[in-house]
Design a protein around this nucleic acid. Sequence first.
RNA 1: GGAGUCGUCGCAUAGUUGGUCUAGUGCGCCACAUUGGAAAUGUGGUAUACCGGCAACGGUAUCAAGGGUUCGAAUCCCUUCGACUCCGCCA
Length: 426
Amino acid sequence: MLDIKFIRENPDIVRNACRVKNFPDVVDELLMTDARVRELKTITQTMTAEKNKISREIPSATDKAPLIQRSKEISDEIANDMAELATAEEKLNDLMHRVPQIPAASAPIGADDTANTVVKTVGTPRKFDFTPRPQWDLLDMNNWWMPEKIANTCGTRVYALCGELAELELAVQTYVIQKLIGKGFKYIDCPSITKPQTIFNAGHFIGSDMSVMNNDVFMLTDTDRCLAGTSEIIMNSLFAGEILPESELPLKFAGFSPCFRREAGAAGRDTRGLVRVHQFKKVEQFIFCRPEDSDEMHELLLNNLCEIMVDLELPYRVIANSTGDMGFNKVKMNDVEAWIPSEGTYRELGSCSSIGTFQARRTNTRFRENGTNEVKFVATLNNTGIALPRALVPIIENHQNPDGSVNIPKCLQPLMGGRTKIGGSH
RNA sequence: GGAGUCGUCGCAUAGUUGGUCUAGUGCGCCACAUUGGAAAUGUGGUAUACCGGCAACGGUAUCAAGGGUUCGAAUCCCUUCGACUCCGCCA
């Protein structure tokens, strides 16, 4: 959500944002509705002020009847305008939730991911002297998963890791959490069950009708709860309605949670393997900060993920996502992609997003500025810490040996009891 | 799941026979005074959002949230949410 004053004063900037982000332009309708709301507010408030004045006079009046009569008349007049005001406010509220966040000037302009640009490429893809196996072959060879059994038992797009790879998954998770704790992030073990409002607060969806989430979110039947697709949404709503002291900012969190996604829009894509599943696990970085610190925090979050790529000894690249690819609520977005040998390409492992005050306006999370004592909205940012099991795909493919075994990145070896490799015939 | 208590301005509290409560008090916080400096003390101030206004300022709303009764609701009624205490059940 944007500031209504900003929209009034900069309609062209907002119209342009709608255009480059590929969302319908509702600015004119919004401004007309806003004008009507303000007009009705002025009218009803003036009448209410008079009614209140009369009510205050009644207790001490000698002849109460005429005052009560007049007060009733005003009430009737107000009721009509209030009804229209309520309708207009509801419409305005919905329109406000259809206006996308303004993208950063630095973001590439384009309709979709074909307009994305590569910011940097780090590491050189390994030259194999044998044909590298795809993830599923390595999983099969080492009995690291049980795809048929799980598909029959739990359905498709669900996985179960077993044996040493399950151990490695836990090691990666632990490694990343400990690394972020070491960088001053507060570790939160987040729940996955939440209220739809929490998802709405995160601002990924357009409009005020929450049914639009149905393609993406698992609802829990016969309850008012749903399953969170990421702990980002939980952390984002953690301080809803609060005014934080500026001295507490920036607040840095490392949230861990199981994540649930319907993937209804991805039918047929990545059905094999560990890349796209209904239930996965994710360590998520989340920051609340002063708006002026957003860019610095964005770099910090992005750098953390880049370090993790290096620690895991993965060739990777950083993408600047285009305006059409970054989504409704974002100012700036950088995907981090790891090299996948079997596909000969890079694939997304994480996504670093700067949201500005867009989410904070929905959650009403603010801070009190030190010198001026002014209350302002905080800025929020998020980035993946590690997504599992997806991150295991480049790990096992890049570090595989001809016999199907996988070398363990050095940083994970202490967490694996000192082992240097898993799988194969050893 | 059953029974009960309860949600007031940062914190703690007063206020529940509806009307000087546009919410009192204490603590905290800010400013000023006093002081060599501090403590203590004194005085004043201390919410958020929105509407109108160049501004000073005026107005409206908010006593968990929403709705209702009433000329008028922190106070009465209903619904929802949340907290606590017992009981039951259970990893």
